[in-house]
């Protein structure tokens, strides 16, 4: 199937227009994207996660995440008996290359994908001394890399360990919820690469988004609710041992 880009544009005008705006990389070029019409979040369905590490690899490829740091990562929990307070947790290289095979069948195992919770009342944006990190009108917490001092106060303030100082750029870095994709009608790289649909990008302001039906019928929870951060990453069937 030898198709040049020109042919693609002629053949498939609708898809091509969307793709053009992806390439152009400017939100203005994205057709009809209006920040105030969206409130982004994510749904994570723990029973569906198989710990393949696809999301971690996809995130690193999509966002040039430096080695040893993670915008998203996967943890594997092993809880034996009633011992909720002492789960054995591993996340080798953030789960990027998957996990060692578990032979022992005692207790329960499950995987927990983690990423920035894009908190509505975010402690990280609260402490930034200069306004270099903020939540956008469509609900994405991001860092202004041209304005950040690299003081790391936000890294200390995040209860979830989602931030790091970029080793070469020397500024705070974190998940952008693939803002460059979601503003153009694409899903995030991690959701695109997830083979089981364990991760779903969701727009809380869109009444047609399937998340509303899901939230109505499932027991969902956010991480560390006692922190009252207004976290917007919802976990289905989250175990009490998860930190």
């Amino acid at each position: 199937m030898n198709i040049t880009r020109r042919q693609l544009l002629i053949l498939l005008p609708a898809a091509a227009v969307a793709w053009e705006s992806v390439l152009a990389g400017t939100p203005e070029a994205a057709p009809n994207y209006n920040m105030t019409d969206h409130w982004w979040s994510m749904l994570i369905d723990i029973p569906k996660c198989i710990g393949c590490g696809n999301c971690v690899r996809a995130c690193q490829a999509e966002n040039d995440v430096p080695d040893g740091f993670f915008r998203t990562w996967v943890e594997r929990y092993h809880v034996t008996d009633w011992n909720l307070e002492n789960p054995q947790v591993i996340s080798p290289d953030g789960g990027k290359e998957g996990f060692p095979v578990a032979k022992e069948d005692a207790g329960k195992y499950f995987f927990v994908p983690k990423l920035c919770n894009h908190c509505a009342d975010s402690p990280c944006t609260q402490v930034c001394p200069v306004g270099a990190t903020f939540i956008t009108p469509d609900g994405v917490v991001m860092v202004d890399q041209k304005y950040c001092l690299g003081c790391a106060y936000c890294v200390q303030a995040c209860p979830y360990g989602c931030r790091y100082i970029h080793p070469t750029k020397k500024v705070a870095d974190k998940c952008t919820l693939c803002y460059h994709r979601i503003t153009k009608g694409l899903t995030t790289a991690c959701c695109e690469a997830c083979p089981t649909g364990a991760r779903q990008l969701a727009d809380l302001k869109n009444p047609k988004d399937p998340i509303h039906a899901f939230l109505k019928t499932h027991s969902v929870q956010v991480l560390k609710p006692q922190m009252a951060t207004g976290a917007k990453v919802f976990y289905n069937a989250l175990d009490g041992s998860v930190r």
């Binding site: 969307a18 490829a61 903020f134 991001m142 041209k146 952008t176 803002y179």
Partner: peptide
Amino acid sequence: YGHYRGAAIAEVAAHPARFAGHQTCETC
């Protein structure tokens, strides 16, 4: 938009995509 540099939003949005998305694949 708030206590930050408004232009920063467009700068983040300008990052190039590496994953084309299955819709794009499926067109061909």
